[in-house]
Design a protein around this nucleic acid. Sequence first.
DNA 1: TTCTTCGTAGTAAAGTCTTCGTAGATCATG
DNA 2: CATGATCTACGAAGACTTTACTACGAAGAA
Lengths: 131, 131
Amino acid sequence: MPAKPPQPPRPTDAELEILTVLWARGPATVRDVHETICRRKPAQYTTVLKMLQIMAEKGLVRRDEKQRAHIYQASRPREWTQRQLAGDLLQRAFNGSAKSLIVGALAARKASKEELAELHQLLEEYEKGTP
Amino acid sequence: MPAKPPQPPRPTDAELEILTVLWARGPATVRDVHETICRRKPAQYTTVLKMLQIMAEKGLVRRDEKQRAHIYQASRPREWTQRQLAGDLLQRAFNGSAKSLIVGALAARKASKEELAELHQLLEEYEKGTP
DNA sequence: TTCTTCGTAGTAAAGTCTTCGTAGATCATG
DNA sequence: CATGATCTACGAAGACTTTACTACGAAGAA
């Protein structure tokens, strides 16, 4: 068995779904995660358990075994993983052009007026910070 | 064999690499694609061939068999697929928040001053178009 | 024509991803 | 204690992904 990688690999689809739950709920047991997942789609308890075990091996989650029901939590904060995923897609599909990615994102889901305003402000801060 | 899906599925990593070549080169033979791929990493000719065959089945590329060396081309324009990918990631990892995705993208790869200015302008057009 | 080169197709091996069933340990309760 | 509930670990099936070898036909050269 290889040691846990310091840089956990890109999460797969199912893994990302579980990470989403952990980010929203904070540290949680298998049962907690399972119940949350089940509200959106049918899934067996042991399936979630197995995923969490695999994710622990990969280093995507950390697990506290002090209790009988182990407590899992994402090993990286949401923002960190989101940055990885955005950067990965940027590299693989957008040839590194952040502009293209943003165009794609805005085209995929029309942003509201408020969201656009937020983005506008965000950009201005970036422009100030990058002289 | 199922018919070609009208909505081709999300391309995998290797598929996306090939699509990138086709987008850049336009319609191309297996040999063309193979040579381009080979400049960046070792790969067998028949591996590229097989990928293109699979991608044709999935509907990711179209193939013209009139010549002996078949001609392949992406079945969807780059922008369309990029929009799909951005939307998919937006949904799966960013809870639909375009802002978060953009923050992630900008954090992943610092944009140049020029790029930021372009984005700024782009946003203003969006804001005009979304009253 | 014969031999070599170039092309596609088919097969399959190895790896990963996802799902779930079963077994065994632990805990709570009558 | 006995029984049922709860939890983890293990194993494995099935699908998908990636890679590459082999076979065989078509085109071109000697």
